[in-house]
């Protein structure tokens, strides 16, 4: 189909009330998450043309009937208040602010909760592995710790060192994780945009996500290191030095 071509449109397969239209242009549909997997075959015509194409001639109100009316409020008008006012004035109408409608859209809230649940399980698994690793690493340094204690370093001094180490390692790990996420978000978006033929963004690393990751990863890393070291530091100096 090309711009300028004449096409015939009808509302049913039998071609009832078919009308001819000229293709004025070709457009990219606005990305709509609710129509992620549906067919992207769309045509736009002027509203009177659509009504004359689809309206039931036996129904005198058919040419005055639409599915929805989009309203842009001027200035600083409150969309919630306007919707409430409109519904009170015209019983039977449902008016909903766009932002609220988008937020309340069930599937996306459910998906958000699902992704959060997956994230919690992943964090739990990572914590267990982290603990296993720190237990091993601390055990590896058992003799070093014993020697340091023998030459006079206190347990609290060593714990402070472990804490500082934990902060550095956890921060480096968190930074690496965030960089990896930033690098992979493009790949994930490209894949899903190709798969669903859409311009929607599936993964977006926002500053909020970055700070939340840091707020979880760094304390977890530090707590893991300190907890594993604490068990070791509570032992006697001679036991640590294997004497």
């Amino acid at each position: 189909m090309r711009v300028g071509e004449i096409v015939t449109l009808a509302a049913d397969a039998a071609g009832t009330h078919a009308q001819r239209f000229r293709v004025a242009g070709i457009y990219e549909p606005v990305p709509d998450p609710m129509r992620l997997n549906s067919s992207k075959h769309e045509a736009r015509v002027h509203l009177p043309d659509l009504l004359s194409l689809t309206a039931n001639p036996a129904d005198p109100l058919a040419t005055e009937t639409v599915d929805a009316v989009n309203i842009a409020l001027g200035g600083s008008s409150d969309a919630e208040e306007f919707s409430r006012d409109l519904m009170a004035r015209a019983p039977g109408l449902i008016a909903q602010p766009v932002r609220a409608a988008a937020y309340r859209t069930g599937p996306f809230l459910v998906l958000e909760r699902f992704h959060l649940a997956i994230a919690i399980v992943t964090i739990l698994a990572s914590t267990v592995f982290l603990l296993a690793l720190t237990v091993m690493l601390v055990d590896e340094r058992r003799e070093t710790v014993g020697v340091l204690r023998l030459i006079g370093l206190s347990a609290s001094r060593l714990l402070l060192q472990v804490f500082a180490e934990g902060v550095i390692v956890a921060s480096a790990g968190a930074a690496f994780g965030i960089l990896l996420a930033i690098a992979s978000q493009g790949l994930i978006n490209v894949y899903f945009q190709w798969r669903y033929d859409t311009a929607l963004v599936f993964v977006r690393i926002t500053p909020g996500v970055v700070w939340r990751s840091i707020a979880i990863a760094v304390p977890l890393g530090v707590i893991g290191s300190v907890a594993a070291s604490w068990v070791l530091l509570r032992r006697g100096v001679l036991s640590l030095a294997r004497r």
């Binding site: 997956i118 399980v121 739990l124 698994a125 592995f129 296993a132 237990v135 091993m136 055990d139």
Partner: peptide, 19 residues
């Protein structure tokens, strides 16, 4: 011989395996 380390390792595999 290393029950804590082995236990944590198994638990970690279990969590990843469950997912």
């Amino acid at each position: 011989r290393q029950p804590a380390r082995a236990g944590l390792g198994i638990l970690g595999v279990a969590a990843v395996g469950a997912l």
